[in-house]
Design a protein around this nucleic acid. Structure first.
Length: 927
RNA sequence: GGGCCGGUAGCUCAGCCUGGAAGAGCGCUCGGCUUGCAACCGAGAGGCCCCGGGUUCAAAUCCCGGCCGGUCCA
């Protein structure tokens, strides 16, 4: 965390500290300033302090609360203070294009509210938001629950606008004090407010970390700066952003040895039972917890130290402590990871190799690995764990139980993938060990990076297979990460489809929003308008029927008629903000600003686009009904000839599923459902339709245009649609393919294009029939049979030819200085046959030299072979080289076999004679 | 979105670095041994070496492009 300050410390001097006599003190351990009523040795927060609340529980008496009770207590307290309770958002942050997961309650209001574009749904408000953070994925459990991958963040937020102040630092601190002291019964003496600085998501501000008994229970952030290029700029909007750890409150009040025991209650026992493991003795955990608060368990050396201390205190063997503690920590981590995975999957994440899908896979892989290490990874057990979570959280997170079918199906698929990696691991490890001669750090990294084999698996297998001892560097995952370049979290692609100067001119001109006739009446084909701006071939009007490219829908084309009476074609239409720019096929003559124009769009093109656009919504809704709630749009394109829709799904579609999607879509078409486009308030629309609205992407506006097909489908959409599904006519899916891990692409046609598609198929079939000479299907069957026969026959002939060439070659035998030499000139050139024959001959006659000339119009090829016995004396490659040099040509090879290529003009006879001569010369010398 | 790895017989893979006549195991077919099965022994069938281009006398092998699959990171 940055210690940068742009504000003086006065911001931390809130009203309450003065009124109630809090003093500002400095922590001798971390140097941070904090406020408390009484003198203290430290700032009261890990790792400066122990888990005091567990070591001396009587000092921190409070009523034990479950997670649900903690949440209720928190929400009700702030409701009584005038905060409106907001329903929690999904853990997958689909409304944001810079984050995958909801990592804090404030994420729910970013960036639309914090940037001032949209007012908050209520002000002030309070929310209990389930959050997911994967930073501590590998060390979950080791801090006994201080770190979790999924947790509920209780946040009360106030948005202070320049003209409307709600409340800020003074009130926030007082609320915190009242909540902890009056509501939870914590003695005020033990409260510590530590001064700190918070930064995140481009915002920053001072904050207080509120710690009690060694546990931070809340963070109170006062977001007031925007960080721009490393500098802080004060924001007009000042936001109270608080985060109360609901699970931590439950832990604190229950004082169980670990947070997991407080959060998961009976589940701790159930998980052990499913895994057939005994629970660690309470005494062991209670002893360990004394050190967990202060030691950083991610530091392996410190962790060893912790175990040693626990062992000596309990009079146990270190190995025993080590085993029991490691095992317990893994089981506890599983409780957290299962919930995290369940929450992500319940929100419809499809595991994949990119985006949030990858994060889901990461959690599942970690979960599987832990189970494998605990000695039992099978689907039945994993499924049981998820079912236990679903049952346990049915009150707070009913969505888990609601999506159990999908969750278990995905777990099954992912487990198979993981097992596949483990199955392949030995072969890959062997290959690496062989290639590199060892398995060092580089090999470990590549094995993990490219093959997904974790280093501990490599070490295990390498020892088992090859007897190799492998050292895993402690900073292994850092090394992996350092291999990858850092890029923006979510890539934004934006290619300008207009020249820069046009965009600049439009922005400078301050032209008001173009009146969208295409929205008011999508059936309007002609219109009159006034020219507002003209730059070269680019024209802006005050109103238009021309739909600009957007939302995956191609733009309209058509004509504009200016006052000179000349029709100019509109070839491209784009948006700059809310201003529509028409690109013409030629420049506009002179100054046309203020002129009246008449426009006409190409109606058939537009109508086809409208039909395909509505069809896309229908297909999406159908896919969701057939496949499940996890189906989201991953991309779409609507063209005149057809459309395509990419959906998230975890396995390839079966033919039956495709047909059911198509049937469902056509039923919706036949039902004749009204397609409504209307403007709604953001929160109203979200409340009514959920985040399904943002299939096509995030919309950062207080009022959004919602296109709905009754209850079947509703999306925030800018496009033009037909008024009734009946107008789509019909839908035909023409292709379904898996384009990426977790993404299936559906291509389809609608309306009259279905007929076009059918005609194309018909024409192709006719063409095939014509070529085959008869009814296509029948002829194809017959021809396939025939082809098989011909192939078999050809094989026989080829065999016969081989034999013939071989026998002719054999007959050509002559003796040159005691060596048998065979020569043959092929009549039907066939390199493959020549090689086969030579191989056969020389293996039967190791004392022979043989050559076959393969004539050709462009070149003359000679394959030369020397039997194993004579190859040393008469190397074939030597012969080829000499001939190439003397006769012109190229050649080479090895001692037993060589190839020579010359110009045909050399002639077969000359070639053969030359080589014979060379053989004679070589043998003459050596004899 | 980017990095890395892979694509050779029905399956699992070797060969590729260092170019020179396509391999192993399993499976399959047939035969032997067996009352039969398994095992064992013997023989055989089975290959656009992912696709396209380039370099070369010669490419599974080297280079470039593409497709497909896997994996890691953001």
């Amino acid at each position: 965390m940055s210690r940068l300050r742009v504000t003086d410390e006065s911001v931390y001097r809130v009203r309450m500290f003065k009124e109630r006599g809090y003093e500002r003190r400095k922590c001798p351990k971390c140097g941070a300033y904090f406020w408390s009523l009484k003198e203290r040795d430290d700032c009261g927060d890990a790792p400066c302090a122990d888990y005091e609340f567990l070591i001396n529980p009587s000092k921190y008496r409070s009523t034990p609360l479950t997670v649900a009770e903690s949440q209720d207590k928190f929400l009700n307290f702030f409701r009584r203070l005038g905060h409106e309770v907001i329903k929690p958002y999904p853990v997958v942050a689909r409304w944001r294009d810079d984050l995958y997961l909801t990592i804090a309650s404030i994420v729910v209001f970013q960036p639309h509210v914090t940037s001032g574009i949209v007012p908050p749904p209520a002000n002030p408000l309070v929310i209990a938001q389930p959050c997911i953070r994967l930073e501590d994925l590998d060390s979950v459990g080791y801090t006994f629950g201080r770190h979790l991958t999924s947790f509920i963040m209780g946040g009360h937020h106030a948005f202070n606008y320049p003209n409307k102040k709600v409340y800020f630092t003074d009130e926030t601190v007082e609320y915190a004090r009242d909540f902890f002291v009056k509501e939870l019964g914590i003695p005020e003496d033990e409260l510590v407010f530590k001064e700190s600085w918070w930064e995140g998501g481009g915002n920053a501000g001072p904050c207080f970390e509120v710690a009690v008994g060694g546990l931070e229970l809340a963070t109170l952030v006062f977001m007031m700066y925007r960080s721009v290029d490393g500098e802080y700029e004060e924001m007009p909007l000042k936001v109270v952003d608080t985060g109360y750890g609901i699970e931590r409150i439950a832990w604190f009040t229950q004082k169980t040895p670990t947070a997991f025991h407080a959060i998961y209650g009976d589940l701790v026992k159930s998980f052990h039972k499913v895994l057939s493991l005994g629970e660690a003795p309470d005494e062991l955990l209670r002893t360990a917890v004394k050190y967990v608060g202060r030691l950083n368990p991610r530091d392996p050396e410190k962790y060893v130290l912790l175990k040693e201390r626990v062992a000596s205190e309990l009079g146990l063997d270190v190995r025993e402590v080590d085993e029991l503690l490691d095992r317990e920590v893994k089981v506890l981590a599983l409780l957290d990871l299962t919930r995290t995975a369940a929450l992500m999957l319940a929100d419809g994440v499809v595991p994949s190799n990119t985006g949030e899908g990858y994060l889901a896979r990461l959690v599942l892989r970690r979960l599987f690995r832990l189970m494998a290490l605990l000695g039992g990874l099978d689907y039945g057990k994993v499924a049981k764990l998820f079912e236990l979570e679903a049952g346990y959280w049915r009150g707070l997170f009913p969505q888990i139980r609601g999506h159990m079918g999908y969750i278990l199906d995905v777990v099954d698929v992912e487990l198979s993938r993981f097992k596949e990696i483990l199955r392949k691991a030995p072969a890959v490890i062997r290959r690496f060990a062989k290639k590199a001669g060892r398995i060092g750090v580089d090999e470990l990294i590549t094995l993990y990076d490219s093959h997904g084999i974790p280093p501990d698996v490599v070490a295990e297998e390498a020892e088992r297979l090859l007897g190799l001892r492998i050292n895993i560097p402690p900073n292994f995952y850092e090394l992996v990460a350092s291999k990858h370049s850092r890029a923006p979290i979510k890539g934004r692609k934006g290619k300008a489809k207009l020249p820069d100067e046009v965009i600049r001119a439009v922005k400078l001109s301050n032209i008001p929003e173009t009146e969208a006739i295409f929205h008011k009446d999508p059936y309007a084909r002609e219109f009159d308008a006034t020219v507002k701006l003209a730059v070269g071939r680019y024209v802006v009007l005050d109103r238009t029927c021309f739909y600009p490219e957007g939302g995956g829908q191609a733009c309209d084309t058509g004509v504009l008629v200016f006052e000179d009476g000349v029709e100019r074609r509109v070839v491209n239409v784009q948006k700059v903000g809310k201003v529509v720019v028409h690109e013409l096929d030629s420049e506009v003559p002179g100054d046309v600003v203020g002129e009246r124009v008449h426009g006409r769009i190409d109606w058939l093109r537009r109508y086809s686009l409208m039909r395909h656009h509505t069809a896309t919504h229908i297909i999406l809704g159908s896919a969701r009904r057939v496949l499940g709630d996890h189906v989201w749009q991953a991309g779409a394109e609507k063209r005149v000839e057809g459309a395509r829709l990419d959906i998230t799904h975890y396995k390839p579609l079966t033919l039956e599923e495709i047909r059911r999607i198509e049937d469902t879509a056509n039923r919706v078409v036949d039902e004749g459902i009204e397609v409504k486009a209307r403007y709604m308030g953001k929160y109203e629309a979200e409340g009514r339709y959920g985040f399904r609205l943002y299939e096509g992407g995030v919309i950062l506006e207080p009022v959004i245009r919602v296109v709905s097909i009754d209850e079947f489908d509703a999306e925030a959409c800018f496009g033009t649609h037909v008024l009734n599904t009946r107008e789509v006519g019909a839908v035909k899916i023409v292709r379904a393919e898996r384009i990426a891990d977790g993404v299936v692409r559906l291509e389809f046609v609608a309306g009259s294009r279905v007929s076009d598609y059918a005609r194309r198929l018909e024409e192709r079939l006719n063409e095939v029939s014509k070529i085959l000479g008869g009814e296509a299907l029948q002829r194809a069957r017959a021809l396939t049979e025939e082809l098989k026969k011909v192939r078999d026959r050809l094989k026989l002939f080829k065999q016969a030819y081989r034999e013939a060439v071989l026998s002719e070659l054999k007959r050509s035998e002559r003796r040159v200085n005691g060596v048998r030499v065979f020569t043959h000139v092929m009549r039907i050139p066939d390199t493959e046959v020549a090689r086969w024959v030579l191989q056969k001959l020389s293996s039967e006659n190791p004392d022979a030299v043989a050559l076959i000339v393969i004539p050709g119009s462009k070149r003359l090829t000679v394959e030369i072979s020397a039997g194993s016995k004579v190859a040393e004396v008469v190397p074939a490659n030597e012969l080829a080289r000499r001939a190439a040099k003397a006769l012109g040509g190229k050649g080479g090879g090895k001692a037993t076999h060589a190839t020579l290529v010359t110009d045909p003009s050399v002639g077969s006879d000359a070639l053969v004679n030359f080589i014979l001569n060379e053989v004679r010369k070589v043998l003459g010398k050596s004899c």
